[in-house]
Design a protein around this nucleic acid. Structure first.
Ligand SMILES: [Mn+2]
Ligand SMILES: [Mn+2]
Ligand SMILES: [Mn+2]
Ligand SMILES: [Mn+2]
Lengths: 219, 219
DNA sequence: ATAAAATTTTAGGCAAATCTAAAAATCAAA
DNA sequence: TTTGATTTTTAGATTTGCCTAAAATTTTAT
């Protein structure tokens, strides 16, 4: 019912890794948590014994229902604090993730529900990621990766899943934020970069690496 | 420069105990921290080696300048979060202390300074305790204990230093909060209880035990 | 199918913070 | 001032989470 900070970090990271690949490997988790594979094996054994994940030695693991629910609780707290930091304390979107990494571990149902109400029950965090509600329900948005957007089709930037400080800082400096209109003018075959129009005004070039991190909704 | 949650709790509690008695004893600290004297001895040895407190084996200890500064930083965070919880999230004053006990350990200068600004640089927390400013300065208020207030002298409730949930809940239910007008009608010799008038209206009886926890400013 | 490479687990340790039990020091009283 | 009670410290364990190095297992390549 109540987990340590370390256990919570494992649960959250496993949840995110699962979203991409189905089963999560020891190495990928070790890398994501900046720890060593041996440590991961020990912790996953513990989490298994607490019935938070399915785990067969050498085979990888995934969250149980219980583990999933716990992870969503942590993600709810993380994203609500991110929203608070950005909207109320005026932090920029590249700064909030790191701070929320600590605040998310203050775990009192009443605190987080009051915070939710104070913020007006926001549905998206500053990066466009959905905020699970009281019951752990996640709103689903039908976004596509910017790299999949056809040319000359207007869309809105709706989500940036990568939390890298420098990526987010870069986007902010280019006035690209959640809700900003965007359109692909040209795909450059040589480096797969994109020439895009931002805010129906400025035209800039985005490397493939950056474009892959941006998700949009066609309007 | 950066201390563990445990070290922070020690520093804060030593600060408060020092305020009352000069030198702090191993047993009193153990009691306040709900731990055992043996654990206190080990931790204080560590804090001494970090030059956060003066400590002679068997003789008791007190904070160094450095330790004092650190303690004030923790108290600043604690009280600002208490203010936030009470003013913004509408928690009652008996609920905020416990929540702030966890939030106070999220330690980022910029976060706390932004929170301070967001709250409008409050000077007192919900219990009337002064909030140290950015530089650790504490405003001093000239309060007296309710038990010292002369009869028929109007005063304002300005501080309740005891953080007991049930004491604070009791006072709230009697409409006694920071800023509430109060006046002593009669001292009862038998049990040293006080008949007081609250808000220039209701007259109630306060036991000596309760009266000792209330501090007032004569108006 | 086998050998080499990669991944994962086990074994053995370490540091922080706690505990209990026993020893040492201090304090209080007769 | 000696003794008995109290306080404090030391000794030795325990728990959590992490580490390195070595062994076990699985995957990949010849
Ligand atoms: Mn984040
Ligand atoms: Mn986010
Ligand atoms: Mn408090
Ligand atoms: Mn307070």
């Amino acid at each position: 019912m109540k987990y340590s900070v370390s256990e919570e970090n494992y649960l959250k990271v496993i949840y995110h890794l699962q979203d991409q690949s189905g089963l999560v490997s020891t190495t990928s988790l070790a890398k994501a948590l900046k720890t060593k594979p041996a440590s991961v094996t020990e912790m996953t054994k513990k989490l298994k014994s607490k019935k938070l994940l399915h785990y067969q030695p050498y085979r990888g693991f995934r969250l149980t229902q219980e583990g999933n629910k716990a992870a969503l609780g942590i993600i709810r707290r993380h994203r609500l604090w991110e929203y608070f930091l950005a909207e109320k304390l005026r932090f920029s979107w590249e700064e909030v993730h790191e701070l929320a990494e600590e605040l998310e571990h203050v775990r009192h149902k009443k605190l987080i529900d009051r915070l939710d109400a104070f913020l007006g029950f926001p549905r998206l965090d500053p990066h466009g990621d959905p905020i699970p509600d009281k019951d752990g329900q996640l709103a689903t948005a039908d976004v596509i990766c910017l790299t999949e957007l056809p040319e000359n089709t207007s869309a809105l930037i709706s989500r940036v899943t990568n939390q890298s400080f420098s990526l987010l800082e870069m986007l902010r400096q280019r006035n690209m934020k959640i809700g900003t209109p965007i359109e692909i003018l040209k795909r450059n075959a040589f480096d797969e970069s994109l020439d895009v129009r931002i805010n129906r005004q400025r035209s800039i070039n985005l490397s493939k690496t950056i474009a892959e991190q941006i998700f949009v909704v066609v309007t």
